[in-house]
Design a protein around this nucleic acid. Structure first.
Length: 827
RNA sequence: GCCGGGAUGGUGGAACUGGUAGACACACAGGACUUAAAAUCCUGAGCUAGCAAUAGCGUGCGGGUUCGACUCCCGCUCCCGGUACCA
């Protein structure tokens, strides 16, 4: 190779060369051989929806995952690092409408395209594990699982008010409504009463909440978001008998201690009581109607006036028997608790404002515990001591809660209750491009599960969606079946599963993607799960990440795999990476600020693209795209490339006497760098810092002047450490550098270097000298120098001595190896 | 409102359990090489004052603890994310 050619390395040629070699040698394969006794490590990045184009968010996600996987391999782990396709979903249908091609064709074509892009980037996936969720071999097991859930009563069908997105022409689960809008298309959702399929995630609310404690490897904020979403609150369910009726009005409250201060009841406009009362009251009917049409959008709700209207009905207080009026109110939600609340204006701010507005009495029953007066003009919402509460007077709030619940229990009027904000998971969708729900509707037998022998229910792939109703509804070959129970003509369910169903168990399926005898190979799951490191965007904090946790527990309880210690959770560690921004905004086609990964790779190569995305920001923060930054990354690789010339040229030394201090200094830099980079991988994946350290090492090697054999050897030691540690970030580049250095093994399977602590121990250290906390100089002392010696050296230093003139030494603080601080006072 | 997280040079970002703030890079300026440019290499740089040595100031704001605070405590401001009449 001529000097000229080496000025810039040829990324395109090198990357193609090494990708072919890795594939030939199978270096990326995970081993299922039980005799392979390397420790196992499962590294997973969230699989993509095959839109056809890889975007920078994907690139960042997969660069992070690949760096971790490669590092672990170099550390001697048997690494599972798979990739697949979240292949069902709406964009395929929209594309089908636009192009007049079936969604399946579009999807498979996109998968081919994106697989090519991922391969071009050189990610170390074990491609033999690849799966696509639209493959019947995949979704058949999801259907099988759903049948098991039906049998256990964990899946059910009910009519309920559900979120409806008109453009998407389907219902949505609660988690998929973001600020009143569809998570996918951003349209405001409306509400409809429809009969839909649900899975009882609420049965697992307690475990999903408690197990968050086990997830110490998760970001705090993701755990908090899930905790808030589950929304556990403890209190009491209390029955208020309705006057002139055998029925009672049931409420949930977190403050049973305030029961004696109840002055009115409030029910949702949609509450049966309000509806019934409205039948004979046109004004109330108008109010109920008005409430049913209010916006669900946050801004509207926040500014909305609190309105109510008397229903004319009364309940009887469960303890005193006093009459309590029932109001219909627009701030009570039918969907939470019982759709009715007991109102205590003295101790709830919202109730207080409502009472003032409508002239309802306010009765104080809690006094501040410290004996002070309750604040004027607002509700007193803190716990305190009960007053005006008859037999409960004098109790503190906590004791009163217990006593009042006990009194209610004795009267059969209430009990302690735990309430959750979490709703059951709505899993049916009125879409075509999804996994069919394996149910047959029979007029006599009702909804009958498809017998396991008849699974999978294969989705006909040749249909043409129109954007309105699912084409499945009019596909007679699909719909017309006989009831598996009675044999009479029946109708197949045409709804398909929420695509979050597929993404809820792909991580387990990756351990045994070709297993045919069941949903999962229990041994494989046991061997690989939980995922040691999961990496993806934070936007799935309460969507995918909650569903996948839930589904894992469902699989466990269905006996699909046997749980092992710590096997209750699918993801041991989670890294949530930030977005990729351009000009301060998220890259999007509509903003026209996208950067095509393909063009970057074409210009600079995959290694440069990878290095830049990891260097530009810490992983969990947003990354601002910078073309100049990409060039910087490219320059760095080229600098290393040229620097290797000095290593391979044995005659590059001057032949003078070796500068021992420079040699020792360089060795210290080498081993300090190994320590720093290793630390980054083991703690928090701060690759930006790791790469900065490698740049420093590169700079140190560049400025080092070897004089003879010793110098050459240390330079070589440093260069090989540098390219070895670059391998997780720029694997093709490192591989080629290994070749140039004449190292026989593959860079990507080389052993990760170990820092030699003996090298890092210095005999002499530099101490910063402070006078009254301000830096005034530096001294060099022996590593184990004590205070007296350090002080003597400091006093001998001219500049420091000047600061000590006419001063009395008050205090001396020595932090060995770091600082010497002298506290002085004028004489 | 509540729950998280954050604020460090012109920019992205470093700083281990309190111990030399600004590593590394980008952008910038000057220089070398070149007929010229690109590429590359060298040098400079937090701000203010000064020719300079140097001094003062400096991690959103105001207090505090400490020999010493980007780091810990108290009180604010602003920004980002989540969530919401949740009873």
């Amino acid at each position: 190779m001529s000097k000229d050619k080496q000025a810039r390395y040829d990324a395109q040629a090198i990357e193609a060369k090494w990708q072919a070699i890795w594939e030939r040698d199978g270096v990326d394969a995970a081993s299922d051989d039980p005799a392979d006794n390397r420790p196992r490590y499962y590294c997973l990045a969230m699989f993509p929806y095959p839109s056809g184009q890889l975007h920078m968010g994907h690139v960042r996600n997969y660069c992070l995952g690949d760096a971790v996987a490669r590092y672990k391999r170099m550390c001697g782990f048997n690494v599972l690092h798979p990739m697949g396709w979240d292949a069902f979903g709406l964009p395929a249908e929209n594309a089908a409408i636009k192009h007049g091609r079936p969604p399946a064709e579009w999807t498979w074509h996109n998968i081919d395209q994106m697989r090519g892009q991922l391969k071009r980037l050189g990610f170390s996936y074990d491609w033999s594990r690849e799966l696509a969720t639209c493959d019947p071999d995949y979704y058949r097991w999801e259907q099988w699982m759903f049948v098991q859930l039906l049998k256990k009563g964990l899946a059910y069908r009910k009519e309920a008010e559900v979120n409806w997105c008109e453009p998407c022409h389907t219902v949505l689960a609660n988690e998929q409504v973001v600020e009143g809008e569809c998570w996918r298309c951003g349209t405001q959702v409306s509400h409809k009463n429809l009969s839909q399929w649900f899975i009882r995630i609420t049965d697992y609310a307690e475990e999903l909440l408690n197990d968050l404690e086990k997830l110490s490897g998760w970001p705090e904020r993701v755990r908090d978001m899930q905790k808030n979403w589950i929304g556990r609150s403890t209190g009491a369910r209390i029955e208020f008998p309705l006057e002139g009726s055998d029925e009672s009005l049931s409420v949930f409250t977190t403050r049973p201690d305030t029961l004696m201060g109840v002055t009115y009841m409030a029910v949702a406009a949609g509450h049966p009581l309000a509806k019934k009362a409205a039948e004979n009251d046109p004004k109330l009917a108008a109010f109920v109607d008005e409430c049913s049409r209010i916006s669900t959008k946050e801004a509207d709700i926040a500014t909305m006036e609190k309105k109510g209207m008397s229903t004319g009905r009364y309940t009887l207080h469960p303890i005193t028997g006093d009459k309590v009026p029932v109001w219909a109110a627009n701030f009570v939600l039918m969907g939470y608790g019982t759709g009715a609340v007991m109102s205590v204006p003295a101790h709830d701010q919202r109730d207080y404002e409502f009472a003032l507005e409508y002239d309802i009495p306010i009765s104080q029953v809690i006094a501040p515990a410290d004996g002070s007066a309750a604040p004027e003009g607002m509700a007193f919402t803190d716990p305190g001591v009960l007053v005006n509460s008859g037999e409960f007077d004098g109790l503190d709030s906590e004791a009163a809660k217990k006593a009042i619940i006990k009194a209610l229990e004795e009267r059969g009027k209430g009990s302690e209750q735990v309430n959750y904000r979490l709703r059951d998971w709505l899993v049916s969708r009125q879409r075509y491009w999804g996994a069919p729900i394996p149910v047959i509707h029979c007029e006599t037998c009702g909804a009958v599960p498809v017998p396991e022998a008849d699974l999978p229910v294969i989705l006909p792939e040749e249909l043409q969606p129109t954007g309105g109703a699912s084409p499945l509804e009019t596909c007679e070959a699909f719909v017309d079946v006989n009831c598996p129970q009675c044999g009479k003509p029946a109708r197949r369910e045409t709804d398909t599963f929420d695509t979050f169903m597929e993404s809820s168990w792909y991580m387990e399926r990756f351990t045994c993607n070709e297993y045919q005898d069941g949903m999962l190979d229990g041994d494989a799951v046991k061997a690989w799960m939980p995922v040691a490191q999961y990496i993806g965007g934070v936007e799935h904090a309460v969507l995918h990440l909650l569903y996948a946790r839930f589904y894992h527990k469902l699989l466990r309880d269905a006996g699909v795999f046997t749980s092992k210690e710590g096997g209750d959770e699918p993801f041991a560690n989670l890294l949530t990476q930030g977005m990729v921004l351009k000009d301060g905004a998220k890259m999007s086609k509509s903003k026209g600020n996208t950067v095509d990964p393909g063009s970057i790779i074409e210009r600079f190569g995959a290694d440069t693209a990878r290095l830049f995305t990891l260097f530009a920001a810490p992983p969990e923060k947003d990354l601002e795209w910078s073309d100049a930054g990409v060039e910087g990354a490219s320059r760095f690789l080229n600098r290393v490339w040229r620097m290797l010339d000095r290593v391979t040229d044995e005659n590059a030394n001057s032949g003078d006497a070796e500068d021992q201090q420079a040699v020792d200094g360089l060795r210290q830099v080498i081993h300090a760098t190994i320590r720093r980079v290793t630390h980054a991988f083991e703690h928090g994946f701060a690759f930006n810092v790791a790469i900065a350290a490698l740049m420093e090492l590169s700079n140190a090697l560049q400025s080092f002047e070897p004089k003879g054999q010793t110098g050459n050897a240390v330079l070589r030691e440093g260069a090989s450490a540098l390219v070895t540690m670059l391998a997780p970030f720029a694997p093709h580049f490192s591989s080629e550098c290994f070749d140039r250095l004449g190292i026989a093994e593959h860079a990507v399977t080389a052993d990760w270097p170990k820092a030699d602590e003996a090298v890092l121990k210095r005999d002499e250290v530099t101490l910063m000298v402070q006078i009254n906390g301000k830096k005034r100089g530096e001294i060099t002392v022996a590593r184990d120098a004590d205070q007296d010696i350090a002080l003597a050296v400091a006093k001998a230093d001219e500049t420091i001595a000047r600061w000590l003139e006419n001063m009395n030494m008050v205090k001396v603080i020595l932090v060995p190896g770091r600082i010497l601080n002298l506290v002085v006072k004028p004489q």
